[in-house]
Design a binder for these strands. Sequence first.
DNA 1: CTAATACACAACCTAGCAGTTGTGTAGAGT
DNA 2: ACTCTACACAACTGCTAGGTTGTGTATTAG
Lengths: 110, 110
Amino acid sequence: MPVEHPLPEPLLELVAYRFRVIGEPMRIRLLEALRHGPATVGQLAEILSGTQQNVSKHLGVLHQAGILSRQKQGTSVRYAIVDTTVFELCELVCGRLRQQLTELSEALTT
Amino acid sequence: MPVEHPLPEPLLELVAYRFRVIGEPMRIRLLEALRHGPATVGQLAEILSGTQQNVSKHLGVLHQAGILSRQKQGTSVRYAIVDTTVFELCELVCGRLRQQLTELSEALTT
DNA sequence: CTAATACACAACCTAGCAGTTGTGTAGAGT
DNA sequence: ACTCTACACAACTGCTAGGTTGTGTATTAG
């Protein structure tokens, strides 16, 4: 069943919050980095050239939103993707953005 | 072709910005209201119980992002959806949220 | 021309969030 | 016990953006 309209206010807040969680470049980069497999905070901080605290903070946000899973391994913590729909979301937006850009360039050249 | 990884920084910013644009309850409500057809600023302000200025501001953001079209009709301005992918995005998130909630309630009852 | 309508723009206040810095904590090695 | 490593938590700063208020602009009616 499709979602009823209008959306109830609490669900509305949740949906908006979910979009805002993904609406940060750093967090998208973290999701991209985790796309090919789990990684620890330190690994991600090194790959993305971010501070440990900042990366940990963003990972915490993604974890609390239910997008990532957290697993302790000794002193390390491994994060992994559990909500793969985020990639569908990103590709939908990417596709639409490229469509907009091509339309714009066509409008400029004609 | 799928988007290359890692995403280049400018595209990353655009994608993140697009998510942030949709990541506001008021704007989602505006999109929902426009789902069944175009409407003017005044109509939307009345339907959603918002001030004219605030509604106009949010509509401007959605228009600048290429999600809405703007058409003057006398003293009124009619906005309409041009990017229907926003609804796919919302339904993806809604579906995922409901799945999370059911999983959570199941985990609580067992 | 005057007035009313419908909308957008600008200034302001404020809340929220990203990023940094400092500190606390838990596990592994010596 | 001591130390190092890896991570999280808390406090602080600065910026961004939402909401309100006030004002400007264009169109229509009288």
